[in-house]
């Protein structure tokens, strides 16, 4: 997202400028509206939602729906709120992101600076693995997790997310290290540094930007995952997205829309915060994932 606007502005009249801005603002409303609806309605009592105007601000402000969503709403059969699932997600995301990023960094280092016969093939296999529909691995994965005694555990989910994140983390680091001057590696070799010394002392200190991009990418993907969570998790390991879906689609009792909205925002909060704090890196990650190199 670099480079300034180019000098091809349609040097139109005032009217064209007004049209341009109107369209831009309409789209802003389009993108913001669902968030606005969720936020305002999560702060209303339930009867106000049912009877009233979805777009209106609350007449009676309340944070009760938030409290319910967090600590005592009925999810599945337990009135636990989303809190335990939030914690499950944290315990799943942190190791999965760190391990896959570390492996991706080492893979990228080997693929660019120590490539050997067949390393290109390994990269091709990793790259292609980024795009498989995960439905194809669900059946055997369930069996393997059972065989490893990891069925229904957070460790099992960490393993799954690490494996299926490797392709992208490797891709990111490979493309970054490909632009890293090989002469530096050679100079370090002449200075007598070994494989890991070169990685730690020469490449790692310069890797902060790509590490941030990779971590954000992985964090967003793993946190937002639903398919693996719903397929492989048990109560002790159900992640936030699955819990939210259970909350929203629970068939018993009245639909507490305000609680659902609060829950949805809670589920979105970590990735939203990451996005707000480091949007630049987030976009870079999206781009790197989409447009190679």
């Amino acid at each position: 997202m670099s480079g300034a606007a180019q000098d091809i502005a349609m040097k139109g009249s005032r009217a064209t400028r007004i049209i341009i801005y109107t369209v831009l603002i309409l789209f802003m409303i389009f993108y913001l509206l669902p968030l606005y609806v969720m936020l305002t309605n999560s702060l209303k009592p339930l009867d106000e939602i049912r009877g009233g105007d979805m777009l209106a601000l609350p007449k009676n402000w309340t944070i009760e729906p938030w409290r319910a969503a967090w600590s005592y709403a009925q999810i599945g059969v337990e009135p636990t709120g989303l809190r335990p699932y939030f914690i499950n997600s944290i315990f799943m995301v942190v190791p999965a992101v760190l391990i896959s990023t570390a492996l991706g960094a080492l893979n990228g280092y080997v693929l660019t600076k120590w490539s050997f016969r067949g390393s290109g093939l390994v990269f091709g296999l990793l790259l292609l693995a980024c795009f498989i529909p995960f439905q194809i691995v669900l059946i055997p994965m369930a069996r393997i997790l059972g065989m490893l005694g990891l069925a229904g555990t957070t460790s099992g989910l960490v393993l799954v997310h690490t494996i299926y994140g490797l392709g992208f983390t490797t891709l990111f680091f490979r493309n970054y290290y490909a632009a890293f001057p090989t002469e530096l590696v050679r100079a370090a070799q002449i200075d007598g540094a070994g494989f890991f010394q070169i990685f730690w002392r020469i490449l790692a200190p310069s890797s902060a930007p790509i590490a941030v991009v990779t971590i954000i990418w992985q964090f967003t993907n793993v946190w937002n995952d639903f398919l693996f969570g719903v397929s492989f998790a048990d109560f002790d390991s159900i992640p936030m997205t699955v819990a939210l879906n259970n909350l929203v689609n629970s068939s018993t009792g009245v639909k507490e829309y305000n609680v659902h909205f609060a829950g949805a925002i809670l589920a979105a909060l970590p990735t939203l915060i990451v996005y707000i704090v480091s949007g630049r890196y987030f976009v870079r990650g999206l781009m790197a994932g989409a447009v190679k190199g």
């Binding site: 937002n224 929203v248 589920a267 979105a268």
Partner: peptide, 11 residues
């Protein structure tokens, strides 16, 4: 793009 599809779907 930062949101889970589950959140988007709910909204």
């Amino acid at each position: 793009m930062a949101l889970s599809f589950i959140v988007t779907g709910t909204a």
